[in-house]
Simulated assay, not measured.
Amino acid sequence: MITDNESIQILRKSFEKVNGEPGVQAEMSRKEDVAVTLFYPLEKNMPERLYKYRVWSNSDDSATLISDNEKEGYETLDKEDAEKLKSTFLF
């Protein structure tokens, strides 16, 4: 569980830079490198939303993410932000 503010800010900034293709039903040929669940508070006095992501590290040092959020789907992250994500998730 990641709870420190510095790591959360790194993750937040990295996920803001994700380039996605909503609605794409993608599958990868290998098991993800890491599976994460993010808790998003959307409205005051309402429970958080849980979004699950599967993350793969690619040979070009970018990252591929597949989300269970129908508005996100199949996504990619460039090398620079993928490295931040990987170091935060320790893979």
Score class of each variant (00 low, 15 high):
residue 1 M to P: 06
residue 1 M to E: 05
residue 3 T to G: 05
residue 3 T to R: 13
residue 6 E to M: 02
residue 6 E to S: 02
residue 6 E to V: 03
residue 8 I to W: 00
residue 8 I to Y: 02
residue 9 Q to E: 15
residue 9 Q to M: 07
residue 11 L to K: 01
residue 11 L to A: 04
residue 17 K to G: 04
residue 17 K to E: 13
residue 18 V to K: 05
residue 19 N to M: 11
residue 21 E to I: 15
residue 21 E to M: 15
residue 21 E to A: 15
residue 22 P to E: 10
residue 25 Q to T: 11
residue 27 E to H: 14
residue 28 M to G: 07
residue 29 S to T: 02
residue 29 S to F: 02
residue 29 S to M: 00
residue 31 K to L: 12
residue 33 D to H: 09
residue 35 A to I: 05
residue 38 L to D: 00
residue 43 E to G: 08
residue 43 E to V: 07
residue 44 K to H: 07
residue 45 N to W: 11
residue 46 M to L: 13
residue 47 P to N: 06
residue 48 E to H: 04
residue 50 L to G: 01
residue 50 L to H: 10
residue 51 Y to H: 06
residue 51 Y to S: 13
residue 52 K to M: 04
residue 53 Y to F: 15
residue 55 V to H: 08
residue 55 V to P: 11
residue 55 V to T: 05
residue 58 N to Y: 03
residue 59 S to K: 12
residue 59 S to M: 05
residue 60 D to I: 04
residue 62 S to Q: 07
residue 63 A to R: 00
residue 63 A to P: 00
residue 64 T to M: 09
residue 69 N to K: 13
residue 70 E to K: 13
residue 71 K to M: 14
residue 71 K to D: 14
residue 71 K to Y: 11
residue 72 E to N: 10
residue 72 E to V: 11
residue 75 E to Q: 15
residue 75 E to W: 09
residue 79 K to N: 13
residue 80 E to V: 07
residue 81 D to G: 02
residue 84 K to G: 07
residue 86 K to R: 15
residue 87 S to P: 00
residue 91 F to H: 04
